[in-house]
């Protein structure tokens, strides 16, 4: 099966651009699985956060998925288009990465 990930890209201060990628998947795979495959197969410059991969323990992969705030590690890939964007209420860093560290844990 094939999913199309339509991703808002760019760094803070740049005009956001939208890029689409097709990625093959098996039922049950997560959006994070798709993003990781996309980096090794198509575009290694795509920036997104994650740490624990599976367990929904680190809570780092939060983003806007089809307009809703959710975890990329728990939302499943689906056939057709899935739109991904950075969290709207956090300061953008780049692509899907936003400033989510607690203020007293920043440099």
């Amino acid at each position: 099966m094939k999913a199309t990930l339509t991703i808002q890209r760019g760094a803070l201060g740049e005009i956001p651009r939208v890029e689409s990628f097709d990625v093959g998947f098996e039922p049950g795979q997560s959006v994070l699985d798709g993003l990781r495959a996309l980096r090794s197969q198509a575009d290694p410059t795509l920036a997104f956060r994650f740490s624990c991969i599976n367990a929904n323990a680190c809570k780092e992969c939060m983003m806007l998925i089809d307009g809703k705030v959710d975890y990329a590690c728990t939302v499943r890939l689906k056939e057709g288009v899935t739109t991904l964007a950075p969290l709207p209420k956090k300061t953008l860093v780049r692509d899907l990465v936003t400033e989510i560290a607690p203020p007293d844990e920043r440099l």
């Binding site: 624990c52 367990a55 680190c58 809570k59 989510i100 844990e105």
Partner: peptide, 12 residues
Amino acid sequence: RSLIGRGGATVM
């Protein structure tokens, strides 16, 4: 390198 107390093995 990750967020404090979120990465590594313990949390898993």
